[in-house]
Measured scan of single mutants.
Amino acid sequence: MTYKLILNGKTLKGETTTEAVDAATAEKVFKQYANDNGSDGEWTYDDATKTFTVTE
């Protein structure tokens, strides 16, 4: 399945997607991506749209 990440950071904004077997796997990928790019904030997940959002 395709999962989407929306970044609403102070310095990093945008979207990216990943293919993953489940939401937990996608979350690990996205959290590593956000960490690698210095983005940290409040995470939410919408199962209906398969979208993670991180807001700083």
Rank of each mutant, 00 (worst) to 15 (best):
52 F>N: 00
2 T>W: 10
25 T>I: 06
9 G>T: 15
4 K>G: 03
31 K>P: 00
56 E>I: 12
49 T>I: 05
12 L>D: 08
42 E>C: 12
15 E>S: 10
56 E>R: 04
56 E>S: 10
17 T>E: 08
37 N>L: 15
8 N>E: 08
51 T>I: 04
39 S>V: 15
12 L>Y: 15
44 T>V: 10
37 N>P: 04
34 A>F: 08
7 L>T: 05
11 T>N: 13
41 G>F: 11
31 K>C: 06
44 T>M: 07
13 K>S: 10
11 T>P: 06
9 G>Q: 05
41 G>M: 10
41 G>S: 05
8 N>T: 10
41 G>R: 04
45 Y>R: 00
22 D>K: 01
31 K>M: 08
46 D>Q: 04
14 G>H: 14
48 A>W: 06
53 T>Q: 06
3 Y>R: 00
27 E>T: 03
13 K>Y: 12
47 D>M: 07
9 G>S: 09
38 G>V: 07
22 D>H: 03
24 A>D: 09
50 K>S: 04
36 D>C: 09
32 Q>T: 07
31 K>F: 05
45 Y>H: 01
18 T>M: 09
35 N>M: 15
55 T>I: 08
31 K>D: 01
13 K>T: 10
40 D>P: 07
43 W>Q: 00
31 K>Y: 05
56 E>Q: 12
51 T>E: 03
15 E>T: 12
44 T>Y: 10
34 A>E: 02
50 K>P: 00
41 G>Y: 12
48 A>R: 09
33 Y>N: 02
10 K>W: 10
39 S>T: 15
38 G>T: 05
33 Y>R: 03
28 K>H: 08
54 V>W: 11
29 V>A: 08
48 A>C: 09
17 T>Q: 09
5 L>Q: 01
2 T>M: 11
11 T>V: 13
55 T>P: 01
20 A>C: 08
5 L>I: 03
44 T>F: 10
33 Y>W: 13
49 T>L: 06
12 L>I: 14
24 A>Y: 09
35 N>Q: 15
7 L>M: 12
47 D>K: 06
47 D>L: 06
9 G>A: 05
47 D>P: 14
29 V>R: 07
37 N>A: 13
2 T>E: 09
3 Y>K: 01
1 M>W: 13
23 A>W: 13
52 F>V: 01
8 N>R: 11
4 K>H: 12
40 D>Q: 13
22 D>S: 06
3 Y>N: 03
28 K>T: 08
35 N>D: 11
19 E>C: 14
2 T>N: 05
47 D>V: 08
6 I>S: 03
26 A>S: 01
45 Y>C: 02
38 G>H: 08
36 D>H: 07
24 A>P: 08
55 T>L: 06
8 N>Q: 10
4 K>A: 04
3 Y>L: 02
11 T>K: 08
56 E>W: 13
51 T>H: 01
10 K>Q: 11
36 D>K: 09
18 T>P: 00
30 F>T: 01
12 L>Q: 11
28 K>P: 02
21 V>R: 12
1 M>D: 13
16 T>V: 15
11 T>Q: 10
29 V>Y: 15
4 K>W: 10
6 I>M: 05
34 A>C: 14
8 N>M: 14
2 T>K: 09
10 K>G: 11
26 A>L: 01
18 T>F: 12
43 W>V: 02
24 A>M: 10
41 G>W: 15
41 G>T: 05
7 L>R: 02
18 T>A: 07
22 D>V: 02
8 N>V: 14
34 A>V: 15
8 N>S: 10
28 K>C: 09
51 T>Q: 03
25 T>H: 12
19 E>F: 15
37 N>F: 15
38 G>A: 07
17 T>D: 04
47 D>G: 07
27 E>Y: 15
39 S>D: 05
55 T>R: 06
31 K>V: 06
6 I>P: 01
26 A>M: 01
56 E>M: 10
20 A>G: 03
43 W>L: 04
30 F>Y: 00
20 A>S: 06
42 E>L: 13
5 L>N: 02
5 L>C: 08
34 A>P: 01
54 V>R: 03
48 A>Y: 09
43 W>Y: 01
35 N>G: 09
11 T>F: 14
34 A>N: 03
25 T>S: 13
30 F>E: 01
43 W>N: 01
32 Q>E: 10
19 E>V: 15
5 L>T: 01
30 F>S: 00
21 V>K: 13
4 K>R: 12
9 G>I: 10
54 V>K: 02
25 T>Q: 13
19 E>Q: 13
21 V>F: 12
52 F>T: 01
36 D>T: 08
46 D>V: 04
48 A>K: 11
34 A>L: 14
49 T>P: 00
27 E>L: 15
23 A>N: 05
44 T>A: 11
36 D>G: 06
40 D>L: 12
18 T>D: 02
17 T>I: 08
35 N>L: 15
12 L>T: 11
48 A>P: 06
45 Y>F: 05
33 Y>D: 01
54 V>C: 12
18 T>V: 14
33 Y>S: 02
54 V>H: 03
47 D>T: 07
43 W>G: 00
8 N>D: 10
53 T>W: 09
5 L>V: 04
44 T>E: 10
12 L>C: 15
17 T>F: 13
27 E>R: 07
1 M>R: 11
52 F>H: 00
19 E>K: 13
49 T>K: 06
13 K>A: 08
54 V>F: 12
45 Y>G: 00
25 T>W: 06
23 A>R: 12
34 A>M: 11
24 A>G: 07
53 T>D: 01
54 V>L: 13
54 V>Q: 03
39 S>Q: 14
33 Y>F: 11
30 F>L: 04
49 T>Q: 05
26 A>C: 02
21 V>A: 13
4 K>S: 05
51 T>S: 04
33 Y>V: 05
37 N>R: 14
24 A>L: 10
53 T>P: 00
28 K>F: 09
23 A>C: 13
36 D>W: 09
4 K>F: 12
45 Y>S: 00
25 T>L: 05
35 N>E: 14
37 N>G: 06
55 T>G: 05
45 Y>N: 00
43 W>C: 03
10 K>S: 12
54 V>S: 02
36 D>L: 12
56 E>L: 12
47 D>Q: 09
18 T>N: 02
45 Y>Q: 00
46 D>F: 03
31 K>Q: 08
53 T>M: 09
32 Q>Y: 04
1 M>K: 12
15 E>W: 13
40 D>K: 13
53 T>L: 06
31 K>N: 04
14 G>C: 15
44 T>P: 00
10 K>N: 12
49 T>V: 04
13 K>R: 11
3 Y>H: 03
16 T>D: 02
38 G>C: 10
24 A>T: 08
50 K>T: 03
26 A>Y: 00
8 N>A: 09
38 G>M: 12
13 K>L: 09
23 A>Q: 11
30 F>P: 00
45 Y>E: 01
32 Q>R: 08
2 T>V: 13
37 N>Q: 14
41 G>I: 05
37 N>C: 10
22 D>I: 01
2 T>P: 05
49 T>Y: 04
39 S>N: 11
6 I>T: 04
14 G>V: 15
32 Q>V: 08
27 E>D: 03
22 D>F: 02
41 G>L: 12
52 F>S: 01
19 E>N: 13
16 T>Y: 15
42 E>D: 12
46 D>N: 08
31 K>T: 04
53 T>N: 04
22 D>A: 02
12 L>V: 13
40 D>E: 12
21 V>W: 11
56 E>N: 08
2 T>L: 13
23 A>D: 04
18 T>R: 04
9 G>Y: 10
26 A>T: 00
2 T>Q: 09
12 L>M: 13
46 D>G: 01
28 K>M: 11
18 T>S: 04
26 A>Q: 00
21 V>Q: 11
49 T>N: 07
10 K>A: 13
49 T>F: 04
6 I>W: 03
33 Y>G: 01
53 T>S: 05
31 K>H: 07
48 A>T: 11
2 T>H: 07
7 L>S: 04
2 T>F: 08
15 E>F: 14
43 W>R: 00
49 T>R: 05
18 T>W: 07
